[in-house]
């Protein structure tokens, strides 16, 4: 049983390669963690290739069944393994703040592996350490110990230009949107390109493209204060995408929005993940967000990861007390 590490974006070429090199063999393809990162345009081609793998077993353990684009192939059998490229790896991460001599541990020995093209949820109650954790990924916060590996590169010690370049490939969206109030919607979206030194015409073209994607091209010349919360978050999503990021970090991106607006923003995030293959790290305290878009989930409580796994499994059979609380399985006043 062989193993191939690669991006879900390269699924098609991998399948082709497999077909050629293993002709006549029994194949077993494990697409754990995939299926959310495949560009829609390629799906049909992928389907077609898979139908040629008559003898293969495609395992979709990584997907909620209703989400699985590979569902039709579940019945096939074989013996070949395929794994997905790791995008983010946190190894034994700890973070201790010290304010006037008083030490406070916000993260303790956190290890996580997030695959390319995944939507990875991190859920926990307020103060659990979620924001600290996500801010360690793009090093807005320097971990006290442990390491951060992005796409195979240990970035923990990055600073200066190197750090700026790294951050440019990681988009981030926030609970309060953090849009620039004195810039137009278009200027907000093109900010990441402006600081990279792209010229105006290029960045405005890209900006309008992104505003189109989030359905706000009519608002390009307006200011954030003229938009609703949901629209502002769409602008900040467009801004996060400006640099063609590999990863988008969402820190409570829907916590300031009502439930209908939340759904539309979540749908947009899922669409972006599917069409562009962008890996998403979704921080939330709302179980509904995990239920709706996350593939995998880690539960953080008291600075530690207390359980993790496939979102569907964790939600169906939570092992940690805090997960049951978040799920409302514990009486609220108990």
């Amino acid at each position: 049983m062989g193993t191939i590490y690669d991006s879900s974006r390269h699924l098609l070429s991998l399948v082709e390669e497999l077909l050629e090199s293993r002709e006549g063999e029994n194949l077993r393809i494990d697409v754990t963690g995939a299926g959310v990162g495949i560009p829609a345009a390629q799906l049909d081609a992928v389907f077609e290739k898979f139908t040629q793998l008559k003898t293969a077993d495609v395992v979709t353990a990584g997907l909620a069944p209703q989400e699985s684009v590979f569902a039709p192939f579940l019945a096939l059998t074989g013996g070949y393994g395929l794994q997905w490229r790791v995008m983010i790896q946190l190894k034994n991460l700890s973070k201790t703040y010290s304010t006037r001599g008083v030490e406070h541990t916000a993260l303790e020995d956190v290890s996580l592996t997030i695959e390319d093209g995944d939507i990875f949820g991190i859920i926990g109650i307020s103060g659990a350490g979620k924001s600290t954790l996500v801010r360690c990924i793009n090093l807005l916060e320097k971990p006290t110990s442990g390491s951060v590996v992005i796409d195979g590169v240990d970035v923990t010690g990055f600073d200066g230009r190197q750090l700026s370049d790294l951050r440019a490939t990681i988009g981030m969206i926030f609970q309060d949107f953090n849009l620039f109030a004195q810039r137009t919607v278009l200027e907000n979206v093109t900010f990441p390109l402006e600081i990279r030194g792209d010229d105006r015409a290029d960045r405005e073209r890209r900006g309008m493209e992104l505003l189109d994607l989030v359905g706000l091209s009519a608002k390009a010349k307006q200011y954030p204060s003229q938009l609703s919360g949901g629209q502002q978050q769409r602008v900040s999503i467009a801004r996060a995408l400006a640099n063609h990021p590999r990863v988008i970090l969402c820190d409570e991106a829907t916590s300031a929005l009502d439930s209908l607006t939340t759904n539309s923003v979540l749908k947009l995030l899922r669409q972006i993940n599917r069409e562009m293959g962008v890996t998403m790290v979704v921080i939330t305290h709302e179980i509904g967000v995990v239920e709706k878009i996350c593939n995998r989930v880690a539960v953080i409580d008291g600075s530690r990861i207390v359980e993790q796994g496939m979102a569907a499994d964790v939600l169906a059979d939570p092992s940690a007390e805090v997960t049951r609380r978040l799920l409302g399985r514990v009486r609220w006043d108990a």
Partner: peptide, 21 residues
């Protein structure tokens, strides 16, 4: 701190944060 953090997260340098934000 929010907008400054946003700018930093997109890779802005200290000077860019001071001027542009």
């Amino acid at each position: 701190p929010g907008v400054i953090e946003a700018a930093l997260s997109y890779g802005a340098s200290t000077w860019q944060v001071i001027w542009k934000v």
